[in-house]
């Protein structure tokens, strides 16, 4: 079983967001992590591999610092990493998906996994786009995945419940929280990770040029939300305060 995991390096969930002098999101000095949803994908890939034979390759599109996230996946137990560094150009989901699909197109795979969304831009579309480009089926927001005999049974979260979907492999799946509990890299895993292959490619290496991946979406401006102002603390004992709150919600805020 050949399993590919598309992963992204994102800002730490606790990162404070500021804008740089060009009005863009400041990335300097921000601590970076593997996108938490992608951790579920890596874990699932490792579990599938550990149930039988297999190989897990993690792939990312990003700058050289993305190696940290890939190394983490290698330390968790992935076998190989591929990093495509597109250089200093603006990417959107179309661009990233195009690079990933082109890279994956030259590889063998049975299963493609990724987080269902990244916690930074939260666009939740890259893996779906990759599947479309590779002409394989996709099942999103998966909370349970069983692989057997060239088929997959995936439970996906939908509003008000869940669905169980069967697809033939090769197929792509995106991980939702609840799919598994990702392992921490082990100390031995960390030691092994530095000896595992990290294949670094440029756009040209995967046979693409900048025009082919030009972003369809243009970011026009970035801003920070206005801080919410703290409102009033309602004084008094529990009974008194609760009663006053009920009144304020109806009469002042008019929300009930």
């Amino acid at each position: 079983m050949k399993i590919l995991v598309c992963l992204k390096q994102t800002f730490d969930t606790e990162a404070k967001i500021t804008l740089d002098s060009n009005g863009k999101i400041e990335s300097k000095g921000v601590s970076m992590i593997m996108n938490p949803y992608d951790e579920f994908a890596v874990e699932e890939a490792l579990r599938i591999k550990e149930k039988g034979e297999g190989e897990v390759t993690v792939i990312s599109v990003g700058g050289q610092q993305t190696q940290d996230a890939l190394r983490q996946a290698l330390a968790m137990g992935a076998d190989k990493a591929v990093l495509v560094d597109p250089g200093e150009i603006e990417l959107d989901e179309f661009s990233t998906a195009t690079v990933l699909a082109k890279t994956i197109g030259g590889m063998e795979y049975d299963i493609i996994l990724g987080g269902f969304r990244a916690i930074d831009d939260g666009s939740a579309q890259v893996v779906g786009r990759v599947a479309e480009l590779l002409n394989i089926p996709v099942v999103n927001v998966v909370t349970k995945l069983e692989i057997e005999g060239g088929k997959a049974l995936a439970t996906r979260e939908v509003e008000g419940g869940s669905e169980v979907i069967e697809v033939a492999l090769p197929a792509a799946f995106t991980a939702q929280k609840g799919l598994n509990e990702p392992r921490y890299p082990s100390m031995k895993g960390i030691m092994k990770a530095k000896k595992k292959p990290m294949d670094k490619k440029t756009l040209a290496d995967v046979g693409l040029d900048e025009n082919q991946i030009a972003a369809k979406v243009k970011a026009l401006s970035f801003s920070l939300p206005e801080a919410r102002q703290a409102g009033k603390v309602i004084p008094g004992e529990a009974a008194e305060a609760a009663k006053e709150l009920a009144r304020l919600l109806r009469e002042e805020a008019k929300v009930i």
Binding site: P185, M187, K188, I190
Partner: peptide
Amino acid sequence: DQMAEMGLTGIPFPEEYGGAGM
């Protein structure tokens, strides 16, 4: 048990003695 799983219980010892070899 979790620390053992991660190999935190034998960090500075060689792998041949069950350590992490760090």
